[in-house]
């Protein structure tokens, strides 16, 4: 569900290591502050980004996060696209279930991240990769 127009040039952060997950959080935080998301919304978006960046690293075998500011005419927001060329997700419904994990985590990454953002879109092809787009709008 990608509505709204892009404002400015998106910033891309490669996700190849633990430290890159930290860098994604910092980039998302700075962008969220620039569009004046409330503190709670900043916190939710950065937390969601942290979960998704870690998924990109662990399950996708690495990839990237593209962070941009968007507007729907009324509100501004932050959009992040997480992309990897990993194995893809065979059963998406299962992967979006609270507590389901194949990686030894808590199984809250994907389902929790979805709850923390306003728009959540996931495209995955087995053997080709996964692309997740999330947006958080200012109130």
């Amino acid at each position: 569900m990608t509505t709204g127009v892009d404002l400015g040039v998106p910033a891309t952060q490669a996700i190849r290591s633990d430290e890159d997950v930290v860098r994604v959080r910092q980039l998302v935080r700075a962008t969220a502050v620039s569009v004046r998301l409330s503190l709670v919304d900043q916190t939710k978006l950065v937390t969601a980004a942290s979960e998704l960046a870690r998924n990109t690293l662990i399950y996708g075998g690495g990839g990237s996060a593209e962070v941009s500011t968007v507007s729907d005419g009324r509100r501004r927001g932050v959009r992040i696209v997480f992309a990897d060329e990993g194995p893809g997700i065979p059963d998406l419904d299962l992967a979006l279930t609270d507590g389901y994990t194949t990686g030894g985590g808590l199984g809250l990454g994907l389902s929790g991240a979805r709850r923390l953002v306003d728009d959540f879109d996931i495209r995955t092809v087995v053997g080709e990769g996964t692309r997740i787009t999330v947006t958080k709008w200012s109130r």
């Binding site: 900043q42 979960e51 809250l108 929790g112």
Partner: peptide
């Protein structure tokens, strides 16, 4: 804000 987010995260 962290407490609110944690609860929503589950």
């Amino acid at each position: 804000a962290v407490a609110i987010t944690l609860v929503e995260l589950g």
